[in-house]
Design a protein around this nucleic acid. Structure first.
Length: 888
RNA sequence: GCGGACGUGGCGAAACAGGUAGACGCAAGGGACUUAAAAUCCCUCGACUUCGGUCAUACGGGUUCGACUCCCGUCGUCCGCACCA
């Protein structure tokens, strides 16, 4: 039987059944007509900006989107009910390669493909009943969006935040474009998965390293970010304090260089030095290679070997003795061999190191391979300094300095300071021999992409004037519509006319930049554009930035912990530096990284992946077995994995929404798993959620039959039974409130279940005709609270219930009910009683019962007496309102 | 290799300023209502038990009146970074 029939098929028998297929579109229409989610900038209530990471318009939403946008919507609706003026917008991260791939394969135009996808996905998101202000919708591929981005690029250029430089870049041979370091995962392109090659190209860079220090230290000002993400960013930025130290070279016919500068964080181990090593493409190595064919061959081999990052990982430490010798800074007669080595990176520090094998594992591996020996100069705490030796495991920790002349006996910290102090005040040539230096692992952000479907970089190359910015009056530099995808590479570059322009400075024929910007640029400021998407003159409006930013709660996947979130933090600073952001530095005050939606995989005997819809599950006491729905063949149930097209373990949100309704889908993705963890999608789970929708509808119907009319005030004095119900309802309300505030949606769901169970029990034995007025008033309140509690999570069902309960307004506009604080305090409490830490029973005492009364009641318990077995009581520990422990 | 997180019933999970371990849901089993099924409702559901209890939060220790929670060690799983000097 099809799902839709399952849901609707019983309608004729049980007309009171809740029908999401009719109800959900109805309320969506009413919300839209009344424009209740349109955010008014003039509203004087406190603002709250909740944002989910905007989607790439791939064509269809997936369950990950459903989970992400449901969480955001719960917060948005809850905050609205709490009296906030909520901004909850939606847009499209619309530039990118898939549109071009589609163009390549289907002969479609990237723009047509993208806008058709946007239309389809917008309809899907609307069917989820999200409380979004659609009037603010933006697409980054719209010239009305990217023209502002081009203007900011030029402002950044003017402010010195953009540079153009020749650099070794990561080249993706499949996508035919450059990737930033952040976009290379395990040596492969983040999108294509192809092994990345190194190429030397002239590229545009955003100078993110200018903000390295601030990006690092400001992480401490983000208490509402996950610790994990802050740590990942801190590691990525990778700050280290050390010494840039120059070694004098013994004059040699081998090379012209007179010195080599190294960078070290361990100047305290200087007396353990056994060699110097420079990167293969270090100037000194290149120089020496001119007279040494063997070295030239080694350098060439290093370049070759390093084309794939995967090889670097497994490569052995290899080196080549250049024949050069360096003098030890503290002993001119102590000569150190200078190697070119494959493990030294040219673009970190100075591209050269001194090797101390005893206290650095890499240096030790290298020294052992080339027979350079080692001298321990740091003695670990607890080791005997006279017998401490190193063989194949370096000691990298702190300790007491040994074998180091004037440093002997110092701590690691003191020795570092002493070496720095001596060398920075001692000249070598006309400069101090060393200076303290801070290095970062973070590299500048290369944004040039050799693609068509991206934001054009607004500059013109002129033979005589060089790089000339496009004048502001000529913005936007729009993409040409007519491009061909007959061959790989950049269609913009091949376009017959587009790139030919006159130089804005001298008027001579010139050429447009044909690279476009990395799409991560587009997503680095969209959150700011949402605050005033109508501003045609400028990217943002100062007053709106001031009013709405930072985003109060941002929600998305952890996969953006470094890329997008670091770029957005940089962009905010760059925008601040160019006068767009007021004094705002951090874009997202609160960040939540949600888990994925995962599903079982199914594989036939022949090894073919099967869609869940083609698989029939049979469950019994012996476990679950799977069969092919058509042939009946038994199917292997594979591991639970992230939903993916290749494994076919996907569930289409459209199918779920059209058969069960959006509320069921929303309720399910909020249930069971904590939101930061993966949630396992199961057919049983969805069925359970759908059943609960019906159950809640029935329960509210029953409550409506018992309840006083809407608006009936509660009587002053309530009998104990009625008070008990009130207390129970308000307790649940308080818990759900706290759970939503803390984004613990799975607990909020459990609390609603719990309250439904308790209310069902409470009305179970009641005869409708004989319900007292007091009880009717309490049921009225209980029903109202139950519905409003559920409203952020299942808004359509709540709306229908709200109307059924006789309300004339909308649940979506109703205020969050106030939990009565006095109701949360019980007059009598049940205290668990332990004997020697083991629970033996409970005593029910007055909340304010005295110590003596509690002790007496506890000792009177039969199980307590039995457990004591006549032994004398040593003491009785009473933790007020929590527990009693009798120690014997 | 470095950094981090986590390990609780058949399953997803609750409980953690140290205080009743397993809330809530799923699956399963039994029953009621039905010609029957679905739906619905009721009961059982960590293990063992002489029905008094005993043992259980990966494993081994420790601190404490009391430990899933804190400390030390071991094992395992997952994630991030990866020759960063």
């Amino acid at each position: 039987m099809k799902r839709a029939e399952q849901i609707d098929g019983h309608k004729h028998m049980t007309p009171e059944r809740y029908n999401a297929r009719v109800t959900e579109p109805k309320w969506q229409r009413i919300w839209e007509e009344k424009e209740i989610f349109r955010t008014n900038g003039k509203d004087s209530r406190p603002e709250y900006y909740v944002l989910e990471m905007f989607p790439y318009p791939s064509g269809r939403i997936h369950m990950g989107h459903v989970r992400n946008y449901t969480m955001g919507d719960v917060i948005a609706r809850y905050k609205r009910a709490r009296g906030f003026n909520v901004l909850h917008p939606m847009g499209w991260d619309a530039f990118g390669m898939p549109a071009e791939n589609a163009a390549w394969h289907n002969k479609s135009h990237p723009a047509d493909w993208t806008y058709a996808n946007i239309a389809a996905m917008r309809a899907q998101l609307k069917s989820m009943g999200l409380s979004i202000d659609w009037s603010r919708e933006i697409a980054t591929c719209d010239p009305g969006y990217y023209k502002h981005q081009q203007r900011m690029f030029l402002d950044f250029l003017k402010a010195g935040l953009v540079t153009r430089k020749k650099a070794k870049v990561n080249w993706d041979p499949v996508d035919h474009t450059v990737l930033a370091n952040e976009q290379v995962i395990d040596g492969r392109g983040w999108r294509s998965g192809a092994l990345v090659e190194q190429r030397e190209l002239t590229q545009w860079f955003f100078k993110i390293t200018d903000f390295a220090e601030d990006l690092l230290y400001a992480l401490d000002d983000l208490p509402r970010w996950p610790e994990k993400v802050r740590l990942m960013q801190a590691n990525w930025i990778g700050r280290s304090e050390g010494l840039a130290l120059r070694f004098e070279l013994v004059p040699s016919p081998q090379a012209d260089a007179r010195e080599i500068e190294v960078y070290t964080t361990r100047p305290d181990t200087l007396f353990g030095a056994k060699f110097l090593a420079v990167a293969a493409d270090h100037p000194v190595a290149l120089d020496a290679a001119r007279k040494d064919p063997g070295l030239a061959a080694f350098i060439s081999a290093c370049r070759h070997g390093s084309t794939s990052a995967a090889e670097i990982e497994t490569a052995d430490k290899k080196g080549y003795d250049t024949g050069l010798r360096a003098r030890h800074p503290f002993d001119p007669d102590w000569l150190l061999p200078v190697y070119a080595a494959n493990f030294v990176l040219m673009d970190y520090g100075t591209g050269a190191i001194f090797g101390c094998p005893a206290h650095d594992q890499r240096d030790l591996d290298f020294a052992n391979a080339y027979g350079l020996g080692n001298t321990p100069v740091v003695c670990p705490p607890g080791e005997d300094p006279f017998s401490f030796t190193i063989t194949d495991k370096a000691y990298e920790g702190d300790g007491l300095v040994i074998n180091s002349r004037f440093l002997d006996g110092m701590t690691t910290e003191a020795a570092k300071e002493e070496v720095a102090r001596r060398l920075e005040s001692r000249p070598l040539g006309n400069r101090p021999q060393a200076r303290r230096e801070i290095n970062y692992r973070l590299r500048d952000w290369g944004i040039s992409r050799q693609r068509y479907w991206g934001c054009p970089i607004p500059v013109i190359h002129c033979e005589s004037c060089g790089v000339v910015p496009v004048p502001e009056k000529d913005l936007p530099v729009e993409l040409p519509r007519d491009v061909s995808y007959d061959e790989p590479g950049n269609p913009l570059d091949r376009h017959p006319t587009w790139k030919n322009v006159a130089c804005p400075a001298c008027g001579a024929p010139a050429r447009r930049e044909t690279d476009t910007m990395d799409t991560f640029v587009d997503s680095s400021w969209y959150f700011a554009r949402f605050t005033d998407p109508w501003n045609d003159k400028a990217p943002v409006t100062a007053a709106c930035i001031e009013k709405w930013l930072p985003v109060d709660q941002y929600i998305g996947g952890v996969e953006h912990a470094i890329l997008h979130l670091l770029y957005a933090r940089f962009f905010t600073r760059a925008m601040q530096a160019t006068g767009y952001m007021g004094d705002l530095k951090e874009p997202f005050a609160g960040l939540f990284t949600q888990g994925m939606v995962v599903h079982e995989t199914y594989r036939s005997k022949s090894g073919e992946w099967l869609f869940p819809s083609d698989v029939r599950i049979e469950a019994g006491p012996g476990g679950r077995r799977a069969f092919h729905a058509g042939s009946g063949e038994e199917i292997e149930i594979g591991p639970i994995e992230k939903m993916s097209k290749s494994k076919r373990n996907t569930i289409d949100p459209d199918d779920i929404i059209s058969s069960f309704g959006a509320d069921t889908a929303r309720w399910f993705v909020l249930s069971d798993s904590p939101p930061e963890r993966d949630v396992i999608w199961t057919e049983e789970g969805v069925q359970g959620a759908a059943k609960f929708v019906q159950r809640l509808w029935r329960l509210v119907g029953e409550l409506a039959g018992l309840a006083a009319p809407a608006g009936t005030p509660l009587p002053e004095d309530l009998p104990p039974e009625a008070m008990g119900i009130r207390r129970m309802v308000h307790m649940s309300l308080a818990k759900v409130e706290e759970d939503i505030e803390r984004l613990r949606f799975n607990r909020a769901v459990a609390q609603v279940h719990d309250l439904a169970n308790k209310l069902s029990a409470a009305i179970g034995g009641i005869e409708t005709e004989r319900v007292s007025q007091e009880l009717r008033a309490v049921f009225r309140e209980a029903a109202d609270i139950l519905v409003l509690m559920v409203a952020p999570m299942m808004p359509h069902l709540a709306e229908e219930c709200w109307a059924h309960l006789g309300h004339k307004d909308l649940a979506a506009e109703a205020a969050w009910p106030a939990a009565g604080k006095e109701l949360l305090i019980e007059e009598t409490i049940a205290l668990p009683v332990q004997v020697n830490g083991r629970k033996r029973g409970d005593v029910v005492v007055a909340r304010d019962a005295g110590r003596a009364a509690i002790e007496e009641a506890a000792l009177a318990l039969e199980p307590v007496r039995r457990a004591l077995g006549g032994k004398p009581v040593k003491k009785i520990i009473i933790v007020p309102h929590r527990i009693v422990n009798v120690v014997a």
